[in-house]
Structure formats: structure tokens, C-alpha cells
Nucleic acid binder design. Structure first.
Lengths: 336, 336
DNA sequence: CTGAAAGCGCTTACAG
DNA sequence: CTGAAAGCGCTTACAG
């Protein structure tokens, strides 16, 4: 156990071993060897030594020196929801193209955690942060103004001017519900959750507008609203209430994919036919749905584009300036 | 736009503003004010200024100075699989208890990406790395020997002595299949994937042992093996092959939760009754299964404990020394 | 009670 | 062609 192996190999270590200065080593390893006119022999010696001893540059030091870490932070609400993991995939992939690494963390929809995470990431000097914000994220205003490089994704927060990338929630919901109406549905329930989030509110508004334009008056008994952290019991209770209140229900609009499967099972258990889902519509979709409910109409969220756009806004601030915020992306509507 | 707001506030900035040395500021802000005998007045001045100006300590500098970052790296195969996200949750939660942050990344089951991620995390000087390894992770041997602080989770890699936390795959599979046999099933298929991973191999071995001990000879036509990256078509083709080869199939053992739903749908589409899943058994489970297939027997993976244990091994190297590796945790078997 | 100084491991003008 | 040196922003012995 040689004492020298205690600390990882540093630039200085290489420099001493090869017999050159740390500057030379730094230049060679960063590919500036030729530019700085380092002899081929020296370059090779340095490279070989680094390679052989598995040199790992200390990014803390490099970041400190350079003032940039080539790292982006991503704060999503949860990892268990495939929607957010897809966002993460998109962000990682797009950031990778520009040589950026992304550190992923989850807020669990908790404003306090969210705030702590943003702070922690700033302390780590990430070059920018992407977040699917909680409704309690208004404090970011100050932070953004102070130079915090933040972009919101999937939803904005009421009263917050931080740049954001969202989808046309109201319009998509409107089109889905209008489609159900065109198919002759009249008693269309809305099954929704997390109503404190602006995107959910927009989807609800789209639902109401579709009814209104079809000359149908809103009926609060058709609204099945489940708390964001509801367990299966609460969901079932709400659905039972809906089925009791509106026994002749003939359509459902889901504002989120998370409630589809519980509803599907709830119906199945009670012998209520769902068919292939022709009488349902949903914002966003999951692979499972294509199997279970191929007849359901959906608004496909442009997840990859959302992630990519958010990364772009962070990396090329120009495009953020040019475009108005929020950036609103269209969903791909699939009517069935 | 004051020039002074260009760079974020530093210790030096606070020191100059308050009129003390950086040492004093550092001590106050790290809670050593009293220990170092800093006057209450000075402490308050420093704290107030830091607070008011939203001081964010530069963790790069701190990490560089301290030689530790209080950060753990986590590399999971994928984000879309709830199994891995649960592991992530467990790791984050357990690490948090000790004041550690975790940076999450995904290898997408790609050995090259995995290697790059481990390297990148080492460069960032994380204090340890937890990884659900690909089969191509044998190079870690060298890395671990070189002081790399790595713990594998969910599976080990053949020929790799890196510490790991796994479950008793063989035994759990054995018990599940034995249960199906006890219920009178005789033609039990095994539906499996990613057979290059040792845990999948162990589950397969448990299946075979159960058959053997029941005096049933192995039948290769009962083996339905799907490539890890198979799309729904390939899966369906394999299932069709199985149903054709073994029309009187009367049970299925799934080595992984990922294949259950596609099989369920495949059967449903062909009008093959699955009942409540009584004739099926599966390693691991998902919330959906409890809804769709409440009769299916399952081996519940101790996900939280796995994550927690891995973190412990990283943080208190002692317990890693003491315990033999791999650490093998039992599954909670639920026979139905 | 507080400060000057060295050091962590990089990068990059500035000299020769 | 290559090196000495300053600086990034912290922490912590060591002095007073």
C-alpha cells in the first residue's frame, strides 16, 4: 500500500513523473498540445503516462478555474411517473449533444425539497437548471432575476415570469373533448388531479370550453377530482361517487395519464364495459394504453421536443431572448 | 447592471463587506463561530449579510479543499422501469439521512455509457458510486482495486468481486415455481429476458430446480426468451411460438415484471383466459399487477433495503468489510 | 477574539 | 518549445 496511491493522480503528479511543468501537461491533455507547440515526444510521454495510470482530472478544480462545469441540473417531480422519466431522457440526450452532463434529482412535488435542490445545484455551480415546478415555486422569481439560469418545463407557475416550455393544454383538451362530443357523447366526465397546477387548470378549461361550444352546460357532478397524492381507495371512492351521480355516463376525459389505469380496473371490477376505450380521451399516453385501450383518443405530448427546447434555452440564451416565454408546443392529437 | 454582480458572492466578498477575514466568515458560516470564539456581534453581521445577499457557497471550492463532496453517484439501467426508479428513491432517501446528495444517471444498459458515467462521476469526485451493472462491467475490477468506491446493486457480474447487494434469486424463483407445481400446474412456461444478466440466470436456475425436484423434466419449448430490447412484435411472436408449441400450457413463471403486461394483453387479445393470474408467478411486482392480476404469486424485492444497504456499504466501509460480498437479501414471497 | 497564509488541482496569460 | 506564477473560492492549521 504505497503512500503515493492515497490521493488520486493529479496533473502535478504527471508533470513530476514525466519531467515537465503542469502547464505542459494541461495543454497536452486538453488537446492544445500542437497549438502550444509542445514536441510530439513530450506529448506522447504525457499521454501515455496519463493513460497508463488512469488519470482522472479533478472536475472540481477545473470547474473552479474555468467558472463553468458543463453540467445542467434537472429537477423533476417524481421518478415513478414515466412522463417525467421521459423528460429526463430527452434532457440528458439533448444536453449530451453539446457535451453537457445532467444531474437529475426529484422534488417529490415538495416545494421545500425543490427549493433546497435548486439551491444545492447552484452551489454546485451547474450552468443551468431545468425544473418541472411545484405551485410553490414563486420564490424563483427573485432567483431568476439574480442571474439564476432556470427554465421551467411542462408547466409554468402563476405569477412567475421564469422562462418555460409548455404545451397547448387548453387547446388540446378542447380538441379531445370536442371529438368525444362529435362521436355523440353527451355525459362526458372529467377525471382530473393536481388542480393546483396551471396545466391541469388549462386542461379543465379546455374541457369546459368544448362543452360550452357544443351547447352543453357544465355539470359539477361530472367532475371527478382526485387529490394529487391520493391512494387507490380515494380514487375508487371518487369514481364510485361519479358512477352513482351519473349512472348514464357516456364518456371520460382524463387530464392526466396517471388516472387511466385505476379507472380501467375500477370499471372492470364492476363489470362496466370500457370496450377498447373509444369513449375515453386522455392527455398524454403510456405504452400500456396502446395495448389496453387502443381506441382511446389521446394528445401526445411532445416530450422530446420539450426537453430539447428547454436545454437549448439554457445553453443558447439568445433563443430564450428572441422567443416569447412561455414557449408553447403543440401536442400531437390522435383522434380515434 | 453593476459589475460586482457579475460573479456570485464569495466568502471574500462577505469578508470585505463586513470587514473581517475570510477565515472568520468561513467559521461563522460553518457553525464554528462559537468554537472559534468569534464575537456574537461579528457572527450576526456575517450571517445577516450572507442571508441578505443570498450567499451560495461554491461547493467546487469546498470539495476541492475538503477532499470530499458529500455526494454519491447512482447509475441505473433505465429511468422508464419503475424498478430502477424505486431503487433510486431508496438510495436518495437513505443517502439524505447522512447528509449526502446523490447524482442520478442512466446507462441505458449500455456498457460504454456505463463506463463513461463511472469515469465522469469519479472525475467529479463523488464519494462513492452505486450501479446496477451491465454484463460488460468487468473492467470495474481494476477500478475498484484502484480505490474506486463502487457497490453493485440488484445484480453482480460474473467474475467481478466488486461488493454487491442482491436478492436470493434462485431460491425465490424456486419457491414461486414450486408453489405453482403444488397447485397442480404441470406445463409451466418460463417467460424471461436479458439472459446475459446473472440474476436472470439464477431465476432460470431456480425454475429448473423446482421442476427437477417435482420430477418434471425440463422442456425447452416451455422457455420463452425475449431479447432485452425486444419490441412488442418480437414479444408477441415469441408468445405465439410458445402457445403453438405448448397449447396445453397451464402456468407461467415470469423472471421479470416487464413481460407481464405484454403477455396479459397478448392473451386477452386472443381470448385466452388469465383469470386473476392464479396460474402465474413473477419476480418483483408493480402496483398495476395488484389491480390487474391479484391472484398472481410474487416475490417482492426488498427494494428499499437494497438501496439502503448499498448506501451503508459506501458510507461505512466497515460494514462492507465485515459482511461477505455479495450481500444477499431475501425476497418477500407472496403465494396466492 | 481575529488574521495572514498555505493548500486543494486545475487553467491560462505572461515570460523567456 | 516550455516553465513560473497567479487565480478560481474554499478550509484550516498556525500565529498573535
Amino acid at each position: 500500500m504505497s503512500a503515493s496511491s492515497r490521493r488520486p493522480l493529479s496533473l502535478r503528479g504527471i508533470a513530476d513523473a514525466v519531467g515537465v511543468s503542469t502547464a505542459t501537461v494541461s495543454w497536452v491533455l486538453s488537446g492544445q498540445g500542437d497549438a502550444k507547440g509542445i514536441s510530439a515526444a513530450t506529448q506522447k510521454k504525457v499521454q501515455d503516462f496519463a493513460q497508463a495510470h488512469n488519470y482522472r482530472p479533478n472536475m472540481l478544480a477545473r470547474g473552479l478555474s474555468l467558472g463553468t462545469t458543463k453540467t445542467l441540473g434537472l429537477i423533476i417531480s417524481s421518478l415513478s411517473d414515466p412522463f417525467y422519466s421521459s423528460i429526463a431522457k430527452a434532457v440528458v440526450s439533448e444536453a449530451g449533444k453539446s457535451g453537457y452532463t445532467v444531474m437529475i434529482a426529484t422534488s417529490e412535488s415538495d416545494s421545500e425539497k425543490e427549493r433546497a435542490l435548486v439551491s444545492s445545484m447552484h452551489c454546485r455551480r451547474v450552468d443551468g437548471i431545468i425544473v418541472t415546478p411545484t405551485e410553490g415555486a414563486a420564490w424563483m422569481e427573485k432567483d431568476t432575476a439574480a442571474g439564476g439560469n432556470i427554465v421551467l418545463v411542462d408547466r409554468s407557475v402563476s405569477g412567475l415570469s421564469t422562462p418555460s416550455v409548455v404545451v397547448d393544454n387548453e387547446e388540446s383538451a378542447f380538441r379531445l373533448v370536442s371529438h368525444l362530443l362529435k362521436k355523440g357523447r353527451r355525459k362526458i366526465a372529467i377525471v382530473t388531479t393536481a388542480h393546483n397546477l396551471v396545466n391541469m387548470q388549462a386542461r379543465h378549461a379546455g374541457y369546459e370550453r368544448a362543452l360550452r361550444e357544443a351547447g352543453i352546460e357544465a355539470n359539477s357532478r361530472l367532475v371527478c377530482q382526485v387529490p394529487p397524492d391520493a391512494d387507490i381507495r380515494q380514487i375508487n371512492a371518487e369514481l364510485d361517487r361519479l358512477l352513482r351521480d351519473v349512472p348514464d355516463l357516456d364518456g371520460i376525459f382524463f387530464t392526466s395519464h396517471v388516472l387511466v389505469l385505476p379507472t380501467y380496473v375500477h370499471f372492470a371490477e364492476r363489470g362496466i364495459p370500457t370496450g377498447r376505450g373509444e369513449q375515453w380521451a386522455c392527455m398524454h399516453t403510456l405504452p400500456d394504453f396502446e395495448l389496453l385501450l387502443p381506441g382511446m383518443s389521446i394528445a401526445q405530448m411532445p416530450i422530446f421536443e420539450m426537453g430539447a427546447r428547454a436545454v437549448d434555452m439554457l445553453l443558447h440564451k439568445s433563443s430564450a431572448k428572441e422567443g416569447a416565454s412561455p414557449v408553447i408546443l403543440p401536442c400531437k392529437i390522435e383522434l380515434r
